[in-house]
């Protein structure tokens, strides 16, 4: 039994808190009444995931998760909701009573399968630590080994920007 008053004990507790935050955020995101609360739950979930990344020894990815997903993606979604949603709270009506139980069953099977796979696989430790996840390593591999994917992603983003501009123009002419 480890005392809570040691650094390890506290960090273990914090790890559990992050897991709880991730799950709670995901539940809020899927079950909330209003869209905006769903987005708030999503932000909470992202924060929890960022904490988990930190425990996986990649603080850079954790901070990027906060900066991009919480700071940019969630804000963009809220902005879209603000422009689109009418001010009345829309209740999402469930069409079929079977949908809920079926969804739970499906996700249960999925979790069971993934957990079984993860537990039964014999994980071989890597022969040497190739990449410590530091900013230098990440930058070098992005610009050397994975430069092609890096460039492709930027092209996708460019297409998205140009496409949204075209759509906005068309809407304005009408």
């Amino acid at each position: 039994m480890m005392s809570l008053l040691t650094a390890e004990g506290l960090s273990g507790l914090l790890f559990l808190v992050f897991i709880g935050v991730t799950l709670a955020g995901a539940l809020v995101a899927t079950n909330a009444r209003s869209l905006i609360r769903s987005v708030a739950g999503l932000a909470l979930c992202f924060l929890g995931v960022a904490g988990l990344y930190y425990y996986l020894n990649s603080p850079f990815v954790a901070l990027m998760q906060i900066l991009i997903y919480v700071g940019a993606v969630c804000v963009t979604i809220i902005f879209a909701v603000m422009l689109a949603e009418s001010s009345d709270l829309k209740r999402v009506t469930r069409r079929n009573g079977l949908v809920g139980p079926l969804a739970f069953l499906t996700s249960g099977i999925l979790i069971w399968a993934l957990a079984g796979l993860a537990l039964k696989t014999e994980w071989r430790p890597a022969p040497c630590l190739l990449n410590r996840g530091t900013v230098e390593n990440l930058g070098q591999s992005l610009l050397t080994t994975y430069s092609m994917s890096f460039e492709l992603i930027s092209v996708v983003l460019l297409v998205a920007v140009v496409g949204s501009l075209v759509l906005a123009r068309v809407g304005r002419d009408k």
Partner: peptide, 22 residues
């Protein structure tokens, strides 16, 4: 003393907008 302290501050600062928006 974080190795990526500069990034940490910008990451935390970006949550501020979310709070105001909500």
């Amino acid at each position: 003393n974080l190795d990526i302290g500069l990034l940490a501050i910008f990451a935390f600062a970006s949550v501020n907008v979310l709070g105001l928006l909500l």
